[in-house]
């Protein structure tokens, strides 16, 4: 029989009782709980690949493997011109020509940049779903896999990384960490708790469902461009 939502305890207790019976566990579970808490506190890591040399170089290499593109910029004020250059250089088939649009949205932290001076029409608002271009920052990035880490929050509307056809992310090289473990450690250290969403993005949205042929832009962006600033 289905358990009504209004009384979910019965199903919960039944499942936990069946788990204990299956594991032949009886009596006090205090010792097991203490062992579990100790494991959580220890935060043991598994074997990790060695990363020789510069984290930024590794990040750029791996991001390229995941079909992201990367450009290095000296400072933040150069971002609008770089975005304009990137859009102009896109060579799109006629069916996708509309994606070259110079209008889009950005996270509030980029509101003050001189977008108009670069010939761009960028609004600092969360995307509604029909924007061509989304410009975001990111919390940190992972060198091992070329991954951008985006955390949810009032000033970091996450869908802006995903709904527009083109996602351009601004990343500071000193925010590149070696592996996923280091990204989690950074979040714990700087934020205390994990936010609602940790979105780890490695290149454009892709599908291989039809005849195992890889197509970019399945549901999310067709392309991800990373501006390494600083």
């Amino acid at each position: 029989m289905a358990t009504p939502l209004t009384d979910p305890r019965a199903a919960r207790d039944a499942v936990l009782a069946r788990v204990r019976s299956a594991l032949k566990l009886t009596g006090d579970r205090g010792a097991a709980r203490a062992a579990a808490e100790a494991y959580l506190a220890a935060r043991a890591q598994g074997p990790r690949p060695r990363i020789d040399g510069d984290l930024t170089e590794r990040f750029v290499l791996r991001a390229g493997h995941m079909a992201s593109t990367v450009e290095r910029l000296a400072d933040r004020s150069a971002v609008p011109q770089a975005v304009a250059r990137y859009l102009d250089a896109l060579q799109l088939p006629p069916a996708l020509a509309a994606q070259q649009s110079r209008a889009g949205v950005c996270w509030p932290e980029f509101a003050a940049l001189d977008w108009a001076g670069a010939g761009l029409a960028i609004e600092a608002r969360p995307t509604q779903g029909d924007d061509r271009l989304g410009i975001t920052g990111c919390y940190c990035a992972i060198a091992e896999t070329g991954t951008l880490v985006v955390l949810s929050g009032p000033d970091t509307p996450t869908a802006t990384t995903l709904l527009p056809d083109t996602h351009i992310a601004v990343l500071a090289p000193d925010r590149i960490v070696a592996g996923m473990e280091d990204a989690f450690a950074l979040i714990r250290r700087e934020r205390g708790a994990v936010p609602r969403a940790i979105n780890m993005i490695s290149g454009p949205s892709r599908t291989g469902d039809i005849e195992q042929t890889i197509v970019l832009g399945a549901h999310g962006p067709f392309r991800v461009h990373i501006l390494l600033v600083g």
């Binding site: 995941m66 509307p157 996450t158 869908a159 969403a197 940790i198 780890m200 290149g203 892709r206």
Partner: peptide, 21 residues
């Protein structure tokens, strides 16, 4: 693949002031 394109970790409903989620 070395990593899947989207790896998401979701914890709880959206907080105050969040637009998405």
């Amino acid at each position: 693949q070395s990593i899947s394109n989207y790896v998401d970790i979701y914890t709880g409903p959206k907080g105050e002031g969040e637009h998405h989620g």
